[in-house]
Amino acid sequence: MTAPTPGQTVGPFFGFALPYDGDHQLVPPTRPDAIRLHGRVLDGAGDPVPDAILDLWQAAPDGTVPQVEGSLHRDGYTFTGWGRAATDRTGRYQFTTLRPGGAAPYFAIAVFARGLLDRLFTRAYLPGAAPAALRSLEAVADDRGFGFDIRLQGEDETVFLSFARD
């Protein structure tokens, strides 16, 4: 196997490049079955991380994995399963999306931030859907969707995942 190209931090100045109109709205918020996935990104001191950006990837409500283009120019009807959200000044992010179904009842998340030298992977499971070892990755249901905080470091550090082959 050829050695992979190493990662590097996304840095502080991605704000004019990676976010785009409609990035965090996988579906319009007015859609009746729209839900919100939201939370905060926090550092090892518990302080908000205002310069993080998350990629979201998920199955559709029927459990299928979307394989359609249109994530960068959403038409308001096609569910592409992928979105992106930068955190705001208070470290908060939010996505408007649909409830993932089927064999993968979770949101796959890639985390990038200034100060974070390489991307991190995690999953935000629907409540009750995580295997025992990953129970801490269950999101918390609220009136319009689910809350899921990401703690980069500390006692309640989020469980990050490795899919390495060896």
Partner: peptide, 18 residues
Amino acid sequence: SILRHPTKAAFQLDPEEL
């Protein structure tokens, strides 16, 4: 990076179809 790196090893698991 001092306050922004995880201190625990990543949890190894097999990816799902997603």
